[in-house]
Nucleic acid binder design. Structure first.
Length: 465
RNA sequence: GACCCCAUCGUCUAGUCGGCCCAGGACACCAGUCUUUCACAUUGGUAACAGGGGUUCAAAUCCCCUUGGGGUCGCCA
């Protein structure tokens, strides 16, 4: 099957989760059929569009691993093209000039609203045959002469057939007084010019679709196949917004998520393949067409994302994770240790994200005097006896010629048994001395990775507490 | 307000064009096991077809209504 698609963000903000998801679906669909996937920057609103957002969006696409074909197309550079199409419509009688002011149109809408009807332009310039005159060329817009009866049918990839009454639609503006195209006009022209076979976009565009279909028809152009993917909602089932926390892809990068995990999770929101949940990018490309698109909106669940991220982290080597964690360690203002890979191996199972992994490492990277004791934990284990145990262990450990895990293990348990103690009398205070808390990885492993000097320093500090 | 869309455990979902589903998986949650603690792993458990009408021998699956949620009504995109 021939497939040409696009992702068309407007650079008025960072790439957010909803946008990322539609980009992912387009990309997956296209790569599956080995078609072309284009990027189009919809920057016709020069006031709100910013270059830095374009850069940010492209960076997020790259981070997610979504590559595109050819150079991105910028709508702001194609006004001449759009106007050629508008002129064609004017010549064929499918469009006309309108001199109504925005205020007048707003009044029409209010009147319609008052009557309980759909607010729309009343078509008063339709038959006036206006032409731009030297007197006031700037004041006029061009409107589509839309059919006022009948229906417009959308055959949607995910929703099936959706029928709109043409009486619901009005004669939309195609060109503004300053010669700039409106959104629907520019989109249709570009989708025709770029040869789009499939238009996959967010559900919020369904009501634009009949308007666009009318433009295609006026132009005598073939329709692409439309596919409207459901919205992503917040955990509370309300529209996803800033108050739900991170909504931009870049935020998740900063949170230490793996891009393949985010892609995997976002794909699962609205797409399913039986009971399968874990997919690599390659598997997603392979299976995408065999899955099912779900028409109902879904809630974003950060906890499941974290779980899935952990699953993806399990497939990475410790060396990989170590490299990826470096920036997060630096963010914490901690030194990057020489045995980072070994630390990753010790701590990876308890950190669902790279950021968590770096944070989990904190106790290993600070100096004995900087180690933070959890007050409750300290209170629980601190006693004359426990100080004595730690003191005894310290002298035993200091005589060790080899500070490896098994020697330490032997020494530790040797001490416990020789003195008729129970491990839980000695273990907890030792753990607090080393970690500052009552939980954590294996004690002997910690000590061997900490090294003799650092271990003994921590035991000293504990006794002084 | 008008138009459009959606509706299975708290959440994401499975449910091969009605029967094998008194509904399966996953996240989260709870409990057991493992373990020097925590975590991991593992085993088990709680938990859903929004409501009401039809159609049918048979409905989570088809139709209608109600309710709830979402989207859109710009010379923004």
């Amino acid at each position: 099957m021939k497939v040409i698609t696009r992702f068309a963000p407007s650079p008025t903000g960072h790439l957010h989760l909803g946008g990322a998801r539609t980009a992912i679906f387009n990309w997956l669909f296209t790569r599956h059929y080995q078609g072309k996937f284009y990027l189009r920057i919809e920057d016709t609103d020069t006031l709100r569009s910013r270059q830095e957002y374009t850069d940010s969006i492209l960076a997020s696409m790259n981070w997610l691993g979504l590559d595109w074909d050819d150079e991105p197309v910028y709508q702001s550079q194609r006004f001449d093209l759009y106007n050629q199409y508008v002129d064609r419509l004017l010549e064929s009688g499918h469009a006309y000039w309108c001199s109504c002011s925005p205020e007048e149109v707003e009044k029409m809408r209010e009147e319609a609203r008052a009557k309980g009807e759909k607010p729309k332009y009343n078509g008063c310039c339709r038959e006036r045959g206006l032409r731009p005159s030297p007197g006031n060329p700037e004041k006029m817009v061009v409107r589509l002469r839309a059919p006022q009866t009948g229906v417009t049918v959308l055959n949607d990839m995910v929703k099936g057939e959706v029928v709109f009454n043409n009486s619901e639609l009005d004669d939309m503006v195609l060109r503004r007084p300053d010669g700039a195209p409106t959104y629907n006009m520019a989109v249709v022209v570009d989708d025709i010019e770029m040869g789009m076979t499939h238009v996959i976009r967010g559900d919020d565009h369904v009501s634009n679709t009949p308007k666009q279909i009318l433009i295609y028809q006026a132009l005598g152009a073939d329709l692409p196949v439309f596919g409207h993917v459901p919205m992503i909602l917040g955990p509370d089932k309300q529209k996803l917004s800033k108050r739900h926390g991170a909504t931009a892809v870049i935020d998740y990068e900063k949170e230490g998520l793996l891009p393949e995990a985010l892609v995997n999770y976002l794909t699962l929101l609205g797409w399913s393949h039986g009971n399968d949940e874990f997919f690599t990018l390659e598997q997603l490309v392979k299976e995408f067409a065999n899955g099912k698109l779900n028409p109902s909106p879904s809630a974003f669940d950060p906890e499941k994302l974290a779980w899935l991220n952990h699953e993806h982290m399990k497939t990475r080597t410790a060396q990989d994770l170590a490299d990826l964690t470096v920036p997060f360690i630096k963010d914490l203002g901690l030194p990057v240790p020489g045995n980072l890979t070994a630390l990753v191996e010790m701590l990876r199972e308890r950190a669902p994200t790279l950021k968590d992994l770096a944070a989990a490492m904190t106790f290993m990277l600070v100096n004995a005097d900087e180690l933070e004791y959890d007050p409750k934990a300290l209170e629980k284990v601190l006693s004359p006896e426990s100080r004595q145990y730690i003191s005894a262990l310290q002298s035993r450990f200091s005589e060790l010629s080899s500070f490896d895990e098994s020697s330490l293990h032997e020494e530790l348990h040797g001490y416990v048994e020789a003195n008729g103690l129970k491990f839980k009398q000695v273990g907890p205070p030792l753990r607090v001395a080393l970690v500052g808390a009552l939980t954590g990885p294996d004690l002997c492993r910690i000590m061997s990775l900490l090294g003799k000097e650092q271990t003994l320093a921590r035991l000293t500090r504990f006794q002084q507490s």
